[in-house]
Design a protein around this nucleic acid. Structure first.
Length: 228
DNA sequence: CCAGACGTTGTT
DNA sequence: GTCTGG
DNA sequence: CCAGACGTTGTT
DNA sequence: GTCTGG
């Protein structure tokens, strides 16, 4: 699963995603993004891409009462095949979520240990996502979910799901709302290659969603990759 | 036709 | 145990 | 995802 | 809103 991530290289959005960022855009480096928060999301526009702040936790447009609905923070790749309701999102509500890494907790008998998963040098990348727009009298909420898939061999040691990470080529196609080879889009939703990912244990200070500072992304142990 | 679901993860 | 809030 | 709350009445 | 199940 993916229930917590980081994103701090906000200045890199325009170059990395060929995107225009509004002057009023308001998001600070975040080392502990949790569900419910407003997060920058990339969408395609006519000429360039754009950035929108969206709430993490997808609220479908058809929800009757907001209070009782539990937003979904993840969507399984398999759902696009088995649940017709979700195929709609694959067809015309695709987006990218910029990130520098994500956390997973390894559960054992009585303990849970947080790990941070990044690209080499914590380089910026993106998750494949879907979004929706919910409207009622008081609200207009844009929200998104991160797609999950089977884990690769490294992540398998901690958890049985991982978020979908797209390479640059796939990012372009994923954003292109005129692209209609949906079978091929589903083929994008595969585990990211092991050798491109770095995994290491971090302090359990990250457990508390209210903690948000650089130290959270430091390796907890000297031997950074003992497990991997 | 209408009613009811529409999600994931982890745990039992 | 289960829901809410971050 | 995890942490923390989980209640009412009346008064300020 | 739209699909599935009865």
């Amino acid at each position: 699963m993916c229930g917590r991530f980081i994103f701090f290289e906000i200045d890199k959005i325009p170059d990395r995603f060929d995107a225009i960022v509004e002057k009023t855009f308001n998001f600070s480096p975040n080392y502990n993004i949790s569900p419910g928060q407003d997060v920058p999301v990339i969408l395609k526009e006519e000429k360039f891409n754009k950035v929108e702040l969206m709430k993490w936790g997808l609220i479908p447009f058809w929800v009757k009462n907001l209070k009782e609905f539990k937003p979904f923070i993840n969507v399984r790749k398999e759902s696009f095949l088995s649940k017709p309701h979700f195929y709609r999102y694959l067809k015309n509500r695709r987006c990218l979520i910029p990130s520098n890494g994500f956390y997973e907790w390894k559960k054992e008998e009585k303990t849970k240990t947080p790990y941070l998963i990044t690209l080499k040098d914590m380089e910026i990348f993106s998750f494949a996502g879907i979004f929706d727009i919910f409207k009622d009298e008081e609200n207009e909420i844009m929200s998104f979910a991160i797609i999950t898939t089977e884990p690769n061999d490294k992540i398998k040691k901690i958890h049985d799901r991982m978020p979908v990470i797209l390479d640059k080529e796939r990012e372009k196609i994923w954003l292109d709302y005129e692209y209609k080879d949906y079978d091929n889009l589903i083929n994008f939703l595969t585990p990211f290659p092991d050798d491109l990912l770095d995994i290491f244990e971090v302090s359990n200070l990250v457990n508390n969603p209210e903690n948000n500072y650089k130290e959270l992304i430091l390796p907890y142990k000297k031997d950074k990759n003992s497990l991997f």
